[in-house]
């Protein structure tokens, strides 16, 4: 075990705060930097894994152009979220590179990438539950020193329900509303890229459609969207670019329509 105190007394609530500890660890970029293609944001031929563990990604490439929606789909355990995290700098890359707008950002920490204009919405724990909706948005804009009221108004335009609930603690909202807060928080940084890890996990189909509509709207404003989705069919329907990953490798790549039409993709992932 890593620390002799790992198994001891960490459940004692009178001395140790319960709940999830921070899991966000910056990755490393040790190996060769590859350059095989160009895009606005590209994770180029990435190979690597968590910590010193086995490689999860193998020569995997994920890219998105400006104002487009790229979707990563694939079976369970295919490394979808891992691929996204690699692009965001949370993986130890043994080979490959990440470039944003032509600049090599492979060695940057996730926080530095936030400053470069990348916003990330984790799958779970993606809002500040004890803070009001408005405070959540303010925290999203923490790095900005300019006037944020314009951006906040845009977020409220995009998600009108949030405006009504802006003084409510975000933890009291419904699942779909929480996801809106999470996306809204990420948008407050005025990012050039928005990365979403399974934004529709656990929400009802109606809410899901609504959320996808909003995501399309966001993309129309020129923000690139990279998202991992469990609901492959609906996601590919709105995707400009789709990546099907299998065991950490690119299995199929194409536009959303192409992939939806590809018989093999249909057979193996979309249930016929």
């Amino acid at each position: 075990m890593s620390s002799p105190y790992e198994g001891r007394a960490n459940k004692d609530a009178s001395i140790v705060k319960q709940g999830t500890r921070s899991t966000l660890t910056p990755g490393t970029a040790t190996g060769e930097r590859t350059h095989t293609a160009d895009a606005f944001l590209i994770g180029d031929s990435m190979t690597g894994g968590y910590g010193s563990g086995a490689d999860i990604l193998h020569d995997c490439t994920i890219a998105v152009e400006k104002g487009e929606i790229a979707v990563i789909v694939g079976p369970n355990g295919a490394g979808k979220s891992t691929g996204m995290k690699a692009v965001f700098g949370m993986l130890n890359l043994r080979k490959g590179a990440v470039r944003l707008d032509g600049e090599d950002i492979t060695a940057l920490t996730p926080q530095d990438r936030v400053a470069k204009g990348m916003a990330f919405v984790p799958q779970t724990s993606n809002i500040f539950t004890s803070m009001t909706v408005e405070e959540n948005l303010e925290m999203g804009a923490f790095l900005r020193r300019d006037d944020i009221s314009g951006t906040m108004a845009q977020v409220y335009d995009l998600f009108p329900i949030l405006k009504d609930k802006r003084r409510q603690p975000a933890g009291e909202l419904s699942g779909g509303q929480r996801q809106q807060v999470a996306v809204g928080r990420a948008l407050m940084t005025q990012p050039t890229v928005l990365m979403l890890d399974e934004p529709t996990a656990g929400v009802s189909p109606i809410v899901m459609d609504e959320l996808f509509d909003r995501i399309i709207e966001v993309a129309r404003t020129g923000i690139s969207i990279l998202m991992v989705e469990q609901n492959a069919r609906q996601a590919l329907a709105i995707a400009d670019k789709g990546y099907v990953l299998v065991q950490g490798r690119n299995a199929h790549t194409g536009t959303g329509k192409e992939l939806l039409a590809d018989p093999e993709v249909r057979r193996s992932f979309l249930g016929g």
Binding site: L24, Q111, V114, M139
Partner: peptide
């Protein structure tokens, strides 16, 4: 939420 705070800069 420590992680989210980090993601917010």
């Amino acid at each position: 939420n420590e992680d989210l705070a980090l993601l917010s800069g």
